[in-house]
Nucleic acid binder design. Structure first.
Lengths: 353, 353
DNA sequence: CTGAAAGCGCTTACAG
DNA sequence: CTGAAAGCGCTTACAG
């Protein structure tokens, strides 16, 4: 009934538990004879070592924890997939802990990881959880991926959200768009805020008026934002959404409302989730190699567990991928109620596709 | 440097470790005074209990393991999301173990779970892994979700793949389609095989010729299958793919090849992943409430951990959701090289939408 | 090469 | 109400 223990194996093989441990771990010297006796006993008893007990002795769990935010879209799935692949390759397990809407929940999630994991990857983009992770980092390796500022003080991977946003806006301007709206991510989310800042800055640099509508990184909020934008009398001729998820929601909503993408409204997203390439028109976006980034993150964390002295802040630079959803504004295509600042002939005729 | 232990807390509060344990767990009686002293010490030392050690004493890990197959699409993401939500609600952690391309890998993954989890949900749809899980079930609660046959002998949740496939085919026949192809899932996958069997049976029942092309549940394989089908001289007028992922791949490939969906080819998928509703035309499919099923699975497993005497095999019946990708065949629309058996006027004029 | 023993950090009857 | 002690299942110096 109860699973066999190392004690049972030792008794059956008529050796000490130390010897059983040695053959099972390949540590220390053992005779061929004893080794065989042990192996037979293991086989007979269907013995499987108790990893919890082993962890307690070795203070190694061979598992890493991933602290996720509450929303759980394709972005995080991809990231976890990348981590999972790397984890398996390195002999690690992955324990995920998501659905943390606030910093307190994230905090208790982090605490409950002690004794369960050898290290943590923190993805919850809450301001305070960064501090929390920092507090915990004294005792356990932590890799921060919760966005926001480049913090050279501790190991982290951050996306260049600001730069990506600027690239998005500049791309739309180059296409001849002037009334460029932004669907923002949730307030308090560091990634979202950096993308918003990039948008505002690029628009200001171009002397264009800004138009921001709130979103929450969800598809629904993208749809709602699109409805709001479509109803405005100074309807935008381009939309940069803070992530692909919202961009897709907006894109479908615009189409349902009878607007054409990209003719009436060009769309640009952020992340390059798999879905971005599957909607029609395919979505222009700022590509992050998501799974690849996940893989890299896990490998770095495992490195941190092994040794130390890594406090680098790696920056992932998103790359603009132009697809069908953003094309030059059709010539002679006029929209009422527009207060364009500059009238400039579109210079690029379909960069691609 | 090293995290404080219960010993440190006891010393600082000047009580025994037993008392510390009591106040922390709310078990046994304690004076208000000692309780306060302990709490103060905990606060001062930033003490967090070591869950591994606790697990060893209580033989409870409060963690459940999920054994996934290698492919990791939206279906599994959704399922895990549902489990995750339920796990949090019940105070459980989730440890995922994926990327098991063969039964041996799955076996070692299962073995390595001992001492790490209180129970297992097995999703790897390999024949032998079912046996493995069965072997392990003597020692640990296991919920089987690896598809295939209804096995009343042990707790499981299975999708009525056969029934779903029959419904898909009958729907297409009702629309007036006659040359209905099937893009099959990987051989050896129980879910895939049941869907294939349902297709074959329904086609036979209708006296229609079958047309099966191999797939692997991936988007790429769906594309490849579509290319193959589009090139045939007896090109199908409908395709039932064994999952949505392949259906989407095929749908896009058909469109790229200049074929119209649903006019030239109607499409039906299986699963109702979120993506199914986002492609255009939206995909008709057999809806499984994926996240909901995941939630249910986790709750049942936790029930199994608590008590026993649950050997029910719950059947999830997929529901046909008709969307734009499957519509009646246009009247007077003739295709060359067709060997229709029956010419029947379409009776249903767009069941919905 | 092998075994007895201590220890990993907790919990839980069992005495007091 | 509280503490000493055994025990959870392993690993690992330390002697032999």
């Amino acid at each position: 009934m109860k699973p066999a223990t190392i004690r049972d194996v030792a008794d059956r093989a008529d050796v000490s538990v130390a010897s059983v441990s040695r053959v099972l771990n390949g540590s220390g010297p053992v005779t061929g004879a004893t080794r065989q006796r042990v192996l037979d006993a293991v086989e007979a008893l269907q013995y499987v070592p108790h990893s919890g007990a082993r962890s307690l002795s070795t203070s190694k769990t061979n598992t890493v924890g991933v602290i996720l935010p509450d929303l759980y879209g394709e972005f995080f799935s991809e990231l976890i997939r990348g981590m999972d692949v790397a984890a398996r390759a390195l002999g690690y397990h992955l324990i995920v802990s998501s659905s943390h809407d606030d910093a307190d929940e994230a905090a208790s999630a982090i605490r409950s990881m002690r004794g369960r994991v050898d290290g943590l990857i923190v993805l919850s983009p809450h301001l305070r959880s960064a501090n929390l992770a920092a507090g915990l980092a004294e005792r356990m390796p932590v890799l921060l991926m919760n966005g926001g500022a480049v913090d050279a003080a501790r190991p982290s991977i951050v996306v260049d959200n600001h730069g990506g946003a600027v690239a998005a806006v500049e791309h739309l301007i180059a296409l001849g768009r002037r009334r460029i709206a932004h669907i923002a991510g949730p307030t308090g989310n560091l990634e979202a805020e950096a993308r918003l800042a990039g948008y505002l800055e690029a628009m200001a640099a171009a002397g264009l008026p800004t138009m921001v509508v709130d979103g929450a990184f969800t598809r629904d909020s993208g749809e709602a934002a699109a409805a709001e934008l479509a109803a405005r009398k100074d309807r935008p001729d381009a939309v940069f959404a803070a992530n692909d998820n919202m961009a897709v929601g907006a894109l479908l909503a615009f189409q349902d409302a009878g607007l054409r993408v990209p003719e009436d409204i060009a769309m640009v997203g952020f992340d390059d989730i798999p879905l971005a390439g599957l909607v029609r028109p395919a979505l222009t976006t700022l590509k992050i190699q998501i799974a690849e980034t996940g893989r890299k993150a896990l490998e770095r964390l495992v490195g941190l567990i092994g040794s130390t002295a890594d406090t680098a802040c790696e920056v992932v630079r998103p790359e603009l991928v132009v697809r069908a959803s953003s094309q030059p504004i059709p010539t002679g295509f006029g929209v009422a109620g527009a207060d364009q600042n500059i009238v400039q002939t579109p210079s690029l005729e379909g960069e691609k596709l």
